[in-house]
Write a protein that binds this DNA or RNA. Structure first.
Lengths: 225, 225
DNA sequence: GCCATTTTGTGATTTAAATCACAATGCATA
DNA sequence: TATGCATTGTGATTTAAATCACAAAATGGC
């Protein structure tokens, strides 16, 4: 399905810098695709010539580690995905899987490069966001390594609440195994710690439904360990 | 000290894409500065309006974590440093410290942006390298988390041998505490494991001088442990 | 060359969290 | 609605590695 990018409510900061014919070029050279929860959007090791723009939904980025699959981070709209792949050797260096019903634009790489060439502001925005990702990833790594499991779990819950769902009540989009994988701990530990948090009245859980009751306490745990 | 970038033996892949007057612009708007081992090149939290090009030497990038200073990675020439800072809010988001006598170019941010504008290939090279950094950082994080200490230590030694010094004999540019910090383990564990590796005849150590004797074994440990 | 400071080596003890084991619950779909 | 598979909860045990404690070396400045 082609769409007119002029009218797109999900248009990215970078694409917003594109005017007239550049935007038409983008309109003419992309396809919107829907994915259902659990669907694989890109798969590590496969070939790709598209940049992906995540316009709606939620995804996880995961990579094959020395022993097992490792979730690197969650990504929410609006964001470009798969840039490293298309810029480099065209082989996907990581996988992206939908955690929820998701819509993405597949943008032809040649088009994308053309836009970078013809529009400095667009290029600058892309560089800007890549730089932000780098800092985020430094920070995330330092946190995960230095904090204990309790702190990391608290941080993930806060991240979901503050940045992804913008609400204190939401449905956790990951299984406990996946959370464990994301914060580098075992499924059992996640289970135990969620129980503890509930026992302490900090959160309320009902299946995957969660409510953060004492956000301040959770923030303290996130900061102190 | 200003230098003519035309003649620079350390010119970056990106800058190599610049022709004539663009290269003169770069020549006129940068300063080469030398740092001695241990000197701080940029310090987290301070203000900066320069991009840094690492032309000679070796540096560590480190960030203030929730508990302690964390070494994120080592960087060797040729590479740009501090891009995220200058692209974003101008406050350094991490520190860079020389591990050896080092030479860097301070490039004025306005100049750098101008080059990005006027030369697509330059911009594309920058984007390309930022993408590579992102993938590397995903990979590094997955490795550190999944491997046990032995494996991570082996990997760092191999990285130094293969990518930094291009030799099986070199002088370790970090203290054991710093290595511990880099691979997320304690100083004592690093000491113990280096001793073990030596006892097993895999490496030979004399102070900070190290020789990798059985590289194959070290690679096996890096992969499996 | 001497002294202070930093770095390293190694044993003993503690600890956070993994792993194992198994039951219970939820969920999807045939 | 029944059947099977994936997810979750919780106790018991094991384990890798941190921490503590102290001595020995090495390094650097004066």
């Amino acid at each position: 399905m082609k769409t007119d990018c002029q009218l797109c409510p999900y248009i990215s900061t970078a694409a917003a810098k594109l005017a007239g014919c550049d935007l038409n070029l983008l309109s003419d050279n992309h396809i919107v695709v829907s994915f259902k929860k659990g669907d694989s959007i890109i798969k590590q090791g496969t070939y790709s010539t598209n940049v992906i723009f995540l316009r709606k939904g939620l995804v996880k980025i995961h990579i094959t580690g020395p022993y097992s699959e490792q979730i690197v981070k969650l990504a929410k709209p609006p964001t470009y995905l798969g840039l490293p792949t298309t810029m480099g050797d065209k082989i996907n260096q990581y996988s992206i899987t939908a955690l929820d019903d998701t819509e993405v634009c597949f943008i032809d790489m040649t088009t994308f490069r053309q836009l970078l060439k013809s529009n400095d502001d667009f290029a600058f925005e892309i560089i800007h966001s890549l730089c932000r990702y780098e800092i985020e990833s430094f920070r995330r790594c330092a946190n995960r390594i230095q904090k204990q499991t309790r702190g990391n779990l608290a941080e993930v819950l806060l991240d979901m609440s503050n940045n992804i769902f913008n609400s204190d009540r939401f449905i956790i989009p990951l299984s406990q195994s996946e959370i464990g994988n994301l914060i580098d701990t075992s499924r059992e530990s996640v289970s135990r710690m969620l129980s503890e948090l509930e026992k302490d009245g900090i959160i309320l859980m009902q299946g995957k439904h969660i409510e953060i009751v004492k956000k301040k306490s959770l923030e303290l745990i996130s900061q102190n360990g």
